[in-house]
Amino acid sequence: MSKAFLAQVIQESADTTGVAANRAATDVMQAIIRELKKNGRFTLPSFGTFIVRKTKARKGLNPRTGEAIKVKAGKTVRFKASPSLKKVV
């Protein structure tokens, strides 16, 4: 799914212009990002939950050279599908 697809669905559903639908899609995505930064999780009922997880520093391998490298600690976003979404898909 892309932002353009989301904007198209909004445009068709709300019977609005493409510019307004694109702005609405952008606003929805920004709201999700703000919520993830603020609380570390975002839940869409009957769809799933996005969760920010911390990753530890670790050793990795450069796939081109096979050389060992250090990977810094960081954060990543995980998604857990709801049971109702799992049942439908």
Rank of each mutant, 00 (worst) to 15 (best):
M1S: 15
M1T: 15
S2L: 10
K3M: 04
K3V: 04
F5T: 13
L6G: 05
A7S: 09
A7H: 01
A7Y: 00
Q8P: 06
Q8K: 13
Q8E: 11
V9S: 11
V9M: 14
I10A: 02
I10D: 01
I10V: 02
Q11V: 11
Q11P: 07
Q11M: 13
Q11L: 07
E12N: 15
E12I: 11
S13P: 07
S13L: 06
A14C: 07
A14H: 05
A14G: 08
D15F: 03
D15I: 01
D15M: 03
T16S: 11
T16P: 01
T16L: 07
T17W: 09
T17D: 04
T17V: 05
G18I: 09
A20D: 12
A21K: 03
A21T: 07
A21C: 06
N22F: 12
N22W: 02
A24R: 02
A25V: 05
A25Y: 00
T26W: 07
T26D: 14
D27L: 14
D27H: 08
M29E: 11
M29D: 13
M29A: 13
Q30G: 14
Q30N: 15
A31C: 14
A31M: 12
A31H: 09
A31Q: 09
A31K: 12
A31Y: 10
A31D: 08
I33E: 15
I33H: 14
R34S: 13
E35N: 15
E35K: 15
L36N: 05
L36H: 08
L36I: 03
K37F: 00
K38H: 12
K38L: 14
R41G: 00
F42W: 06
L44P: 02
S46E: 12
S46K: 10
F47P: 00
G48C: 05
G48Q: 02
T49G: 07
F50Q: 06
F50M: 13
I51H: 05
I51K: 10
I51P: 03
V52E: 09
R53I: 03
R53L: 04
T55C: 12
K56G: 05
K56W: 01
A57W: 00
A57P: 07
R58A: 12
R58N: 05
K59W: 06
K59I: 03
G60F: 09
L61S: 12
L61M: 11
N62H: 13
R64Y: 11
G66A: 07
E67S: 08
E67P: 05
E67L: 04
A68H: 05
A68V: 12
A68C: 10
I69R: 06
I69Q: 03
K70C: 00
K72V: 06
A73L: 02
A73E: 04
A73C: 04
G74M: 10
G74D: 11
K75V: 02
K75M: 03
K75S: 09
K75E: 11
V77I: 13
V77G: 04
R78P: 01
R78D: 10
F79L: 10
A81K: 01
A81E: 00
S82R: 00
S82W: 00
P83E: 07
P83W: 00
P83Y: 02
P83I: 01
S84V: 01
S84Q: 08
S84R: 08
L85G: 02
L85D: 03
K86Q: 02
K86P: 00
K86E: 00
K87E: 13
V88F: 11
V88G: 06
V88L: 15
V89T: 14
V89E: 06
